[in-house]
């Protein structure tokens, strides 16, 4: 972690109550790690250093351990991710139905490659694996929402809607 001081974060009252409930569902605190990371993501918009410290503190785990677990998983929203996470499925069934074109069009429109975020912090483009919706390929998940049967032509409109 860098030399800049880490902002101290706290969970809201509602979140603390939820954690209380959550801890009653498992025989130890560690088991609540994934759900509490989710909660941090929801509360603060993403998971950064200070969220990791907070989660570690809440569950009596070391920050290093929490980092180790967090980085194993790809679906948490991390510091620096844009407001909208465009997660384009790239696995075989989607590939058979043209996800490459979707990916390329988004790269062109946004001027970024997979894994990058636009300068205005609005969009992060990601190539992800099978989203479990291959019957409506090609598919992209934008934050929590699935966009199915994507047509390259629809993408411009979708981006406009998201830009607001």
């Amino acid at each position: 972690m860098s030399g800049t001081p880490i902002e101290i974060k706290l969970f809201s009252k509602k979140a603390r109550e939820f954690i209380e409930w959550l801890l009653g569902r498992y025989p130890n605190k560690q088991a609540a790690l994934l759900p509490v990371l989710r909660l941090a993501e929801e509360e603060f918009g993403n998971i950064d250093d200070s969220s990791v410290m907070l989660v570690a503190d809440t569950l009596d785990l070391s920050p290093g351990y929490v980092w180790g677990v967090l980085t194993f998983y790809t679906h948490y929203r991390r510091e620096g991710d844009g407001k909208y996470l465009l997660q384009v499925c790239s696995t075989l069934p989607c590939a058979l139905r043209g996800c490459d074109k979707v990916q390329r069009r988004l790269e062109e429109k946004l001027g970024i490659k997979a894994g990058e975020t636009t300068g205005d912090g609005l969009f992060t483009l990601k190539k992800v694996e099978c989203l479990g919706s291959c019957d409506t390929a090609p598919v992209m998940q934008v934050n929590e929402k699935y966009h199915e049967n994507l047509d390259v032509e629809d993408l411009d409109e979708l981006l406009e809607t998201l830009r607001g």
Partner: peptide, 12 residues
Amino acid sequence: LDMTMHRGAGAY
């Protein structure tokens, strides 16, 4: 019987 939903986070 207690039942709890537990969300994963993207790992095959």
